[in-house]
Design a binder for these strands. Structure first.
Lengths: 269, 269
DNA sequence: CGAAATTTTGATCACGTTCAACTTCAGTGG
DNA sequence: CCACTGAAGTTGAACGTGATCAAAATTTCG
């Protein structure tokens, strides 16, 4: 039934192009991210839509990418959470990143000869799939998208780097605080978080696998953050109570992209 | 005097275009990397040369980027080593990556509103500088470069991810072994390493800051790898003696980029 | 509702850090 | 040429952080 409603909405979208774009800018987390570093016109966005094959729904726990796959597609996360991870021989798993709305499944996997990490859905998700060669063709027609892709990849790299710093040099409290602030900022960027609170539908086991802490220790650290009244946790909702203290503790600095420096003539292109 | 010789070489290069390209392919580590995921014609490469401002020599220990800089340039490493790092409040430093010939200084820093990491030269280096907006303009004229940039950024991201896995889940021996294999592969890719040996002109302190090990522990781990006859170390030259054992130990899988899937029509563009 | 997953708490232990001393080596000036 | 200096590498002993193991309490979901 919901399915049907969506279809109807889809048809209406195609009917009125102007409205479609308007809707996207408000709603679509991926477009929200793109608009942060360049201006995309209605024409641009329609070209982008043209290469998006279909909106795909995916159930919780479904594996989206398995290590070793040749994954010639990209998936733009429209809704839901996923984790990118790697399983080691000894059975341990390292979670590399949480994929939030606006993130891209298959980056960097599809740019390598085969995926080096696996991705699994944590909640039910909706994705917009896109063939890699269609995207490449789009980038050739509209170079702006090729640059946008670089910008996205650079943000991913910066995020991984931040994780290296977390795991490498921050104490557990700082580490957790940093992770929470970063996640909040990422969600806020795509309008999926309030001013100081957000839903984080992941288990403590996942967080501990991401932050290189044992589950018991993560739990204690979380309790400590709560005891010091820096955050509040209810169900799977995190509220940042004392942001200044949190930012000081974590030495948090938001990662925000620069705008792509188009020269006047290039912009015309 | 050396400077003069370079100038002369430069003039000669411009004189005979065919030869110039040939020379680059053999010598230039950055071009070597590019050619791995797309075919760049002589015309392409000349466009690239046009945006490269100058070849800059930099002395050992010189800071190339300081955290917080607005760094609107990119530097293609032609020769020498550098490290990208972050200093924490408590005085600890985390080395995020070693920059080798063929790598890019300012990625991802220049794509963010300001650099989030610092970069310092470890050896004397030569860099080819390039203004970011000139590169963007190039990408607009020749979309292939925009895609190439994405591919490079994706490789960087994959490399950081590997570091997260190292620090997060590999034991010290495995971690060090993985780092050595990876570094060898990266150097080999740009023809800066022999079949099983390479120069690594960095101190143990740097390696330990990269791998999250204390200097004494790194030293012991290195000694152990030597004792088990997996590697040999003389001066700052590493030789991988038992590659199969090393790869098994580290669970090493090389990261190699896919080729950019240009469709026939797009290629024409 | 019952079974399984998740969260919470406690006790013990190991790995890698820290601190310290010593060695080796390269560079520098007397 | 040697003594001196400082940086880098090496080795040892003690300590502490966070892991591991175990079990209870709680929540989630089929």
């Amino acid at each position: 039934m919901t399915e049907l409603l969506v279809r109807v909405a889809d048809i209406q979208r195609k009917a009125t192009r102007a409205k479609a774009v308007e809707r996207d800018e408000r709603d679509d987390p991926f477009i929200a991210r793109l608009q942060r570093f360049a201006d995309f016109t209605a024409v641009d966005l329609n070209s982008l839509h043209a290469v998006l094959e279909c909106e795909q729904r995916v159930k919780k726990r479904r594996e989206l990418v398995l290590e070793g796959d040749v994954f010639g597609k990209l998936g733009f996360v429209k809704d839901g959470f996923a984790v990118r991870y790697k399983l080691l021989r000894n059975g341990k798993r390292q979670i590399l990143s949480f994929l939030l709305p606006g993130d891209v499944v298959g980056l960097p996997g599809s740019f390598l000869d085969r995926a080096v990490h696996s991705v699994v859905a944590v909640t039910d998700m909706t994705l917009q799939m896109c063939a890699l060669d269609a995207l490449v063709a789009l980038c050739c027609r509209r170079p702006k998208f090729g640059l946008a892709l670089s910008w996205l990849a650079a943000q991913d790299a910066a995020l991984y780097a931040e994780r290296v710093i977390d795991i490498g040099r921050r104490r557990p409290m700082e580490r957790l605080a940093h992770f929470l602030l970063e996640t909040h900022a990422r969600l806020a960027m795509v309008r999926r978080a309030g001013a100081s609170a957000f839903e984080l539908p992941v288990t403590q086991e996942m967080i501990s696998d991401a932050l290189r802490l044992s589950v018991p220790h993560l739990n204690r650290t979380l309790a400590q953050l709560r005891a010091e009244r820096l955050i509040a946790v209810s169900e799977r909702r995190i509220e940042i109570i004392d942001r200044p203290a949190m930012e000081r503790l974590a030495q948090f600095q938001p990662i925000s992209p620069a705008r792509i420096p188009f020269s006047a003539e290039a912009e015309m292109h």
